[in-house]
Design a protein around this nucleic acid. Structure first.
Lengths: 223, 223
DNA sequence: ACAAAAATATGATCTAAATCATATTAAATC
DNA sequence: GATTTAATATGATTTAGATCATATTTTTGT
């Protein structure tokens, strides 16, 4: 991680929903930081020091289980907020880790300043609340999927989800990350990807995946 | 469902975090409603009309899957807010159902009034945001458990969770609800409960479950 | 109080997906 | 550019837990 130039004070969640008079204060307090591919931005279990806003790059938000198992909870990209799970009423420890999937730039605000921002900008609090509400809905939908859908359907859901995020039918992701996101193992993902390729619903070239038949993939989810 | 007497304007989330000048408006707008055991308070997929606050009784918050499968996302009790998942930015449909597990009293506020309350009371918005943050953390923890823990550990977690909620080592719950909460089937719960009884970690008498050795149950979770 | 419906109990069977094992290829790192 | 390390490929084996089947008990509606 190294410090980088100042940000434009327009793009991020914080600037977007703060009153104009507050933006100057934001400029004084926020820092631009950059991370290399695979670098950890923050670690599950460590104390929450601040909040991050993704400027550029891709980040995975994940929970660890033992030494070699994980669950990817979310992929974040430009504009997304990171580390906000620490704002709850419990102990101030990150409950997830964030790791850069490619070279990434974020801007960072310490917790005290962010909390002050919430007090000063009710609109910010409201938007953040709505953002949480959406994430909660999505988390619960995923929970239900984990319990009631088979792996192939969950993989279809994961592929569509990632495609939607990238706003592109083509994207790049490792099999292992796909497994951790769909809540299964590398081998099972490998086999089910093969099936989707056979069925011509997707095309794969190295780490690049292209969705060929979105409609048919979607059918797996409601079935 | 039938209308019941007015509420005390003190207990619920809404009253607790509204400024004093707003309480009168709350009194004018909120309604007390009562539901009999097994009655549906609101249904997944139907339009969000308002927000509920639990006054008395126990409620399960659950997602349906097909005609005969479900996932219980949360048990709610006195003071808890219900229906708030509808506050996100998406379509205004309930993403979960709420069903009374025993005779229950709630108070109800239509959505427009609740949203006005959020605008008027930044403190309310802030508290609600924190509440969401906590629920999100918990949902993500459960997701990880579903993926990486076996049923016995998830059952241990569910039992401890329910005990904590009731603030009592003894509580009452059907095997089917326990299964839906732990993300598994009735039969599997039945068998694992037998094991816990054999190991003398719990005692069961009809629908009543008593936790005998909390410590040992907890060990299942981190293992 | 009685019939119908729901919840519980328990064994037998089946299967999706995890685990194991090992070869190959690609990507970092020194 | 060579060497370690990580990611991918793919078959074989195992297993946890779902599903099925059926009997009994409890609850609930009329």
């Amino acid at each position: 991680m190294k410090k980088a130039g100042a940000c434009d004070l327009k793009t991020c969640f914080l600037c977007q929903f703060s009153i104009p008079e507050w933006i100057a204060a934001v400029g004084d307090h926020k820092q631009h930081l950059s991370y290399k591919k695979n670098e950890t931005i923050f670690q599950e279990g460590s104390p929450v020091k601040g909040i991050y806003f993704l400027y550029d790059g891709k980040v995975k938000v994940h929970k660890q289980w033992g030494p070699d198992k994980e669950l990817i909870v979310r992929f974040a990209q430009k504009g997304d907020i990171l580390g906000h799970r620490g704002l709850g009423s419990g102990e101030r420890l990150y409950t997830v880790s964030a790791t850069a999937l490619e070279d990434t730039t974020v801007c960072y605000t310490d917790l005290a300043f962010f909390e002050a921002s919430l007090k000063v900008n009710p609109q910010l609090t409201l938007k953040l609340m709505q953002f949480y509400a959406d994430e909660l809905q999505e988390a619960e939908r995923k929970m239900r999927n984990l319990v009631h859908m088979d792996v192939k359907s969950r993989l279809a859901d994961a592929l569509l989800d990632i495609s939607r995020l990238h706003n592109d039918i083509q994207f790049t992701i490792s099999r292992q990350d796909l497994a951790s996101f769909a809540g299964t193992t590398y081998e099972t993902i490998y086999r089910n990807l093969q099936e989707f390729i056979q069925e011509k619903l997707i095309a794969v070239d190295g780490k690049s995946i292209t969705i060929l038949q979105e409609k048919k993939l979607k059918k797996y989810i409601t079935l």
